[in-house]
Design a protein around this nucleic acid. Structure first.
Lengths: 333, 333
DNA sequence: GTGAAAGCGCTAACAG
DNA sequence: CTGTTAGCGCTTTCAC
């Protein structure tokens, strides 16, 4: 015996009112006489009626669902952002369709397409390599999108992030300032604009302002994984660098352990500053000095911004920059 | 100028066929003459038509969306499971609505309710404390649910996990076998059945079979967080224990660092075995010995099982137990 | 304050 | 192989 789903029609009949009235009480429309409201509510309770969100979505053209594109859920950085997003979304009664993109353009495109097909009310995009085709989809769908904890070189998308150039510059300057002649920059793919256009820029600015020469032998392009960091330790050390600024905490943890396991003393012989201030920075030994970012807040503010966009509210600041800091732990002297 | 959405009706008109035919080509129904198919496909392409999944869901009563309830996305254990779930879901063309439950019963209940309202085709539940009210909702909705990487004391839900009792027993026996008279059990909330009914049981079995007395002073109930582990280090050490089996990797990392920072040498003076084999086990120094689990596979198999359930396929084994292992790293001698 | 009725965009018999 | 015709369950004018 299949369970018969109870519909708004059933409620209307049992309560001896019209569907419209039931709809009104369900949606909290004030134009219902209290007595009627109570009568309807009682029937809803008795029949255990639960409004069908799909039907509602079709009729109202709103799904109260947003899409979130994340490069990798298992990366602590993105996971922390996702937590902030989820909390605020829940607060505003939105649900989240979470889709892993693997930081892969074609998968991103495909994922965005199915998200649009599902009529999500908005999108939060994490990832640093937004292709034009993707941006074109966003425009075509005229759907609110906010970029979170990531960056798009043409700032034509609403976004929430920190000032990556300044943060990198400050961290590198700091490293340079304590006598390190050669400071390496170790980041993920240079195809990502956060690395190529922001961190590299901050790095060069730091060199320039302190009168150091830029040397591309000191720039290491990786893939943000622990193992890569671990394996590159030797190469990085051999470059003559005595310090490094690293673009991801897992990567930094790998580098740190790789150095340590090869007998390099950190921070005595090599200094390290990482960038995302995730849990990893406290777990490694020595603990890692890092740029600090309000990770949860970046996600939360992004989601809040998206709600405004979805409601067509005025937003004065479409590109929110949150403050960063620099914390000295034990991988710097 | 708002963008006019193009519907199946527009395509039908332009291609001079019926909506039904368009629907057939969109859904890959073979009963369409190739010439007709091509004609329709061309129009779809020209008009840039994208089927509305909400309408489709209403008409077909299938949303190709599943709900995933996760206690905490930022916990590496659950995140790894989620990755496996997501990959297989994508493979079968399902999307995932991800909802954080904070391991909080009332939030779980609320989340499940909105998921059901959204007409998800199935549910994957992670969490170890499934209330009866929750189970009741599942039944009432007669919706396929599979429990992943977690456990429900009454095994009446389809599930995928490892044998937590045996794993705990083996790890504890191992610790006992190397001369530790007092082995602590450090786990999260005892309200969670995985701790109370499984790990504690394995722990007691190990004691019993090796002729050791059970002593509840050696059982520590925590909350699975790094900081808690760190802070409890002293108390645990003071209990006289010289080894501990820990129920979560972050917790274990906290305990490890807490001990180390208090001058306790691990593994020389204190041995430690953790349980989830996440990235943390490699990152800490010393690296943590651990029970090993096929985390990704647990998620993947759970999702695969769910697809079968959703298709009403026969499933011979509703409670899948995947193999675990025990790996010696550097927190055991 | 309440009801009637027309969709929302699509699928699924059922004919032919 | 293709078209017709009902809905799916709800929101939303528009009257009254």
């Amino acid at each position: 015996m299949e369970k018969q789903t109870v519909t708004i029609y059933d409620v209307a009949r049992e309560a001896a009112v019209s569907m419209a009235t039931v709809s009104r009480v369900v949606n909290g429309n004030p134009n219902v006489k209290p007595a009627t409201r109570k009568k309807v509510l009682d029937v809803i309770d008795r029949l255990d009626y639960r409004p069908n969100a799909v039907a509602r979505g079709l009729a109202s053209k709103k799904t109260t669902t947003i899409g979130v594109i994340i490069p990798d859920v298992t990366n602590a950085y993105f996971a922390e952002l996702a937590l902030g997003i989820d909390d605020i979304a829940a607060m505003y009664k939105y649900n989240i369709i979470l889709a892993n993109s693997d930081e892969n353009g074609s998968k991103e495109l495909q994922v965005v397409n199915t998200l649009l097909a599902k009529q999500v009310d908005g999108l939060i995009f994490m990832g640093n390599n937004m292709g034009d085709d993707l941006k074109h989809e966003f425009e075509r769908a005229s759907m609110p999108v906010v970029v979170a904890g990531s960056v798009d070189i043409k700032q034509d998308m609403p976004s929430v992030s920190i000032d990556y150039v300044a943060a990198t510059k400050e961290a590198v300057t700091n490293l340079l300032g304590r006598g390190n002649q050669k400071v390496a920059l170790v980041v993920g793919s240079m195809k990502e604009s956060i690395n190529h256009d922001y961190r590299l820029k901050g790095y060069r600015q730091a060199l320039e302002e302190t009168g150091n020469e830029y040397n591309d032998q000191l720039v290491f392009e990786t893939n943000d994984s622990y193992n890569t960091g671990y394996e590159m330790a030797e190469e990085i050390k051999n470059s003559g660098a005595t310090a490094a600024f690293v673009g991801d905490d897992e990567l930094a943890a790998g580098l740190l352990n790789g150095l340590t396991d090869r007998g390099v003393k950190v921070p005595a012989e090599f200094e390290l500053t990482t960038t995302n201030d995730t849990k990893y920075t406290e777990i490694t030994r020595p603990k890692m000095s890092s740029v600090t970012q309000p990770l949860y807040d970046i996600g939360a503010v992004a989601m809040r911004l998206l709600t405004k966009l979805m409601n067509n509210e005025d937003v004065t600041d479409r590109n929110v920059i949150l403050p960063y800091g620099l914390i000295k732990r034990d991988t710097t002297r």
